[in-house]
Design a protein around this nucleic acid. Structure first.
Lengths: 178, 178
DNA sequence: TGTACATCAGTGAACGCGCGTTCACTGATGTAC
DNA sequence: TGTACATCAGTGAACGCGCGTTCACTGATGTAC
């Protein structure tokens, strides 16, 4: 028996299932066949919506990036300057800890995510980092400060994900705050 | 015809080939069978030296970690304090850029590398980072400064590897130096 | 110095595996008349 | 309102793939007598 999905429904269902699987296991452990199986559809039908597996994975990365952007936006609301950066940075690291595989997927595939708006989450972090370091002398110092802040937050996330540092909320606060 | 390796020779040859392959492609692209093929030996013979593929990959990570330690040691020679940290940090990032797959492998599998001495490279970076921030008030501030420095350097390496920042030597210097 | 033998690092064939992808197809949907 | 038809999202079977690993084996090495 054939299941009929309204336009876009199977696509959305595949992305939802994909993100759920990525919450449980690593990127390499997620196959196109399994995503189709979980949705309850034949593997073949995926090809009606994505040219190949890579395209589906890119869609997952894009959706993950959107969610990271939302998390940062929620965290930053009503804050300014240094407090704003700290909030964004904390949200960034916490998102990574809560969604390890998705966070990794975002960054390993984001070089291919070129379309407008897809890098919103990254743009926002950079903007906040720039605001945080705007007390510095010139615009170049501010830019350097922003990149340093982004690197700090990104490195913190990665080191905690890889078990090099304890994934401790208070440690995050200490390192980002002061 | 059977090839005879003196004790440890095939082991060393496999590690050498593994690192060479990792210089060309990603971790997932390196198979046990290919490493054996490259050495010129049957896949089966690998099991005389490693219980399974995971053990071989762990050996590759350990060797990579040693090389990272050496690179840092060479970079740091004769320097002190902040200059010492900057040198170590630069060496760390440059190693990552020169050996992307190995650098990633080191960190994704280093949670399992528990034996003494295996974390030498990491210990060294932490020590130098601590030295760099020893001007700070108390020991806790110094520790925080060290972790911040490590995060900064690690994040910089990862962002450059993932194409988020240009892999530019001058940018490395600017962000680590100042 | 020569022989017997244990050790153990190699061998090729075979296993089952799940994968991504292609194929020719079917049948429900929604539109045109 | 009913019928004809094009569209196209589904289907299951099949493909070739290289993988990690197991098996029973072979034959070179080096030691004990």
């Amino acid at each position: 028996m054939e299941k009929r999905y309204h336009h876009g429904d199977l696509r959305a269902a595949l992305i939802e299932v994909g993100l759920r699987l990525l919450a449980e296991r690593d990127v390499e452990g997620v196959s196109l066949r399994e995503m189709a199986r979980e949705v309850g559809v034949s593997a073949t039908s995926v090809y009606r919506h994505f040219p190949d597996k890579a395209a589906l994975m890119r869609a997952l990365a894009r959706e993950g990036l959107d969610r990271l952007a939302v998390a940062q936006q929620e965290a930053v609301s009503g804050k300014e300057g240094a407090a704003s950066f700290a909030a964004t940075g904390r949200a960034y690291v916490r998102f990574a800890l809560a969604n390890p595989a998705i966070f990794r997927l975002i960054f390993t595939s984001s070089a291919q995510l070129q379309a407008t708006g897809e890098i919103e989450a990254l743009r926002m972090l950079r903007a906040n980092a720039a605001a945080a370091s705007s007390g510095d002398a010139g615009p170049e110092q501010a830019e350097n400060g922003a990149l340093r802040a982004w690197s700090l937050v990104h490195g913190l996330a990665m080191l905690m994900l890889d078990g090099q540092l304890p994934a401790d909320d208070r440690l995050i606060d200490k390192l980002i705050q002061g």
